[in-house]
Amino acid sequence: MSDELVQIETPFAFNEENQREFDELIGRYPIKEAAMLPTLHIAQKQAGYITPAVMKYVAEQLEVTVMKVKDVVTFYPMFFEEPVGEYVIRVCHTLPCALRDCKVVLDHLKAKLDTDIASETNLAKGTTADGKFTLMKVECLASCDVAPVIMINDDLYKNLTPEKVDELLAKLAS
């Protein structure tokens, strides 16, 4: 509780570029509240994760209660309420990927990064000690034809094998 209070006091505000993006966004909807998801995406991009201060700021911008923002943040898996690594690795483990051995890829990533898999309530568990990577399992990424797939931040990587994972990690580490 006390931690959260401290964080609220660390104010958050959009930087100039994001403010412009937000201003453009808000004109698209007849009610401000509808801009919630895109606004939270922008805020998360800037802040890294959704802190109580971010929620407070977004609530003010959209003229809703902070509780409403929290309500939304907790519903959607793509919003993080804890810090995550520089690279968020999402490993698809739904049936089509499972039929194509996503488990091998996941186990390899776990061993290679020396970390556990993050859960939605405990992201730190899947984050490497140096804070560079967060490893998480996600549901279908809609690329079943090129399974197994992973997403690293915004990019999709297809037809993965342990060798390809090694190459990718080497590239990201450099």
């Binding site: 998801l37 995406h41 519903f75 959607y76 898996p77 793509m78 919003f79």
Partner: peptide
């Protein structure tokens, strides 16, 4: 006619 894209956030 206006078209706007609206991103979801990972909920099936």
């Amino acid at each position: 006619i206006d078209i706007y894209t609206h991103p979801g956030a990972g909920a099936y």
